[in-house]
Structure formats: C-alpha cells, structure tokens
C-alpha cells in the first residue's frame, strides 16, 4: 500500500482520532498532519512492519504528549484559556438543547480536561473500540497500566458528572 493509498483510506480516521486526542478540532488536524509528515519519508519501513495503523497511532499519541510537554508555561495558560473559552461557548450553545445533548457536552468537557494518557485511553477504548492490549501497545505501557488509566479517568468522570447532576437538581429546586 502506498502512502497516498493509506492516507486516502485511513487518513480521515486518523484525523478524527487526532481531534479527540488533542481535545480541539484544529489542533487535532495540525497534529494528524504533523504525524503524517513525519511518517512520509519512512513509509516503506512502516508498511514493512505490517501494522501501519498501530504505528501511526503510537506516533500520534507520542507527538501529542511530547508537544504538551514542550510547550512553555505561557502557552499552556493560553491553551487552557482557549479551552475554557471554548467550554464557555459550548455551555451557551447547549443551553437550549435537550438534557441528553447537554450531558454529552459535559462529558466531552470532562474528557478534555483529563490528563493526556487518561484521555487517550478513554478515546482509544470508547471511540476506537480497542482492547487494553492494543491500547497498551499504542501507549507503550502494560495492559495493567491501561486499566489504571481507564479506572482513574472513569472515576473522575463519574464524580464530576454526579456533582454536576446534584448542582443541576439544586438549581432546579431554587428556580421552580
């Protein structure tokens, strides 16, 4: 399979995954493009390895984690502000939506706030539908560590969602 064939066939899936891993649509698209640029000159070797999907996903995750590490503290603040601004916009956007849509938006906001490896674990498990062994291969850790990431992430999500529900019920009591 040529590089072009692969990108046409699997590129969209990689971009979608990158959007989730980066937690931001545009950053994700930049991330996917960056990974493909790095993969292009070594494509023959990647294909010879027999599992380009796994290889590129691992590249993507590593690039994202590395990128976050390298960014200066100023940029992290800027990035966080950008996420918060996006959150604010989303909260306003979902104001008129149904309860389920609002809840999904809340789940996404929480996923985006998870530490990178926990977020990647959740994305690979629930979006890519990969088992712990496959996720471990991409993250470069043991399946046990993957289970730990997943458990911590899900605990965080449940706690925050429960708190959000309580807060909503409280608001409802005071406004009706």
């Amino acid at each position: 399979m040529t590089f072009e064939d692969y990108v046409r066939l699997r590129g969209p899936a990689l971009v979608r995954l990158a959007r989730l891993v980066a937690g931001d649509r545009h950053l994700g698209e930049d991330l996917a493009q960056e990974v493909l640029i790095r993969a292009y000159p070594r494509w023959n070797r990647i294909v010879a390895g027999g599992r380009p999907d796994v290889y590129l996903r691992r590249m993507l995750v590593n690039a994202h984690v590395s990128w976050r590490r390298k960014r200066s503290s100023t940029e992290v603040v800027d990035g966080a502000e950008r996420v918060e601004r996006a959150n604010g916009a989303e909260v306003a956007d979902v104001g008129d939506l149904g309860a389920e849509a609002a809840e999904r938006a809340a789940v996404w906001r929480l996923i985006r706030r998870l530490p990178p490896k926990q977020r990647v674990t959740i994305v690979l498990r629930y979006y890519e539908d990969l088992d712990d062994g496959a996720i471990a291969e991409i993250l470069g850790c043991s399946p046990g560590t993957v289970r730990t990431h997943a458990m911590r992430a899900l605990t965080t999500l449940r706690q925050h969602l429960a708190a959000t529900e309580e807060s909503a019920e409280e608001t409802l009591r005071w406004t009706t």
Binding site: E4, V7, R8, G11, P12, V15, R16, L17, R19, L20, R25, A32, Q33, L36, R104, A105, V107, W108, I111, I122, V123, Y126, Y127, L157
Partner: peptide, 19 residues
C-alpha cells in the same frame, strides 16, 4: 462517552488537501 466522542470527532475532512 462513546456518543460524546463520536460527535466531537465528526466533521469534514478533505483528504486531498491533507495529502
């Protein structure tokens, strides 16, 4: 979780531009 992720991942992707 799965639905929220699917919603956020979707959107136009122009493969030839990406290439």
């Amino acid at each position: 979780i799965a639905t929220a992720l699917r919603e956020r991942a979707e959107g136009d992707i122009h493969v030839e531009q990406l290439l």
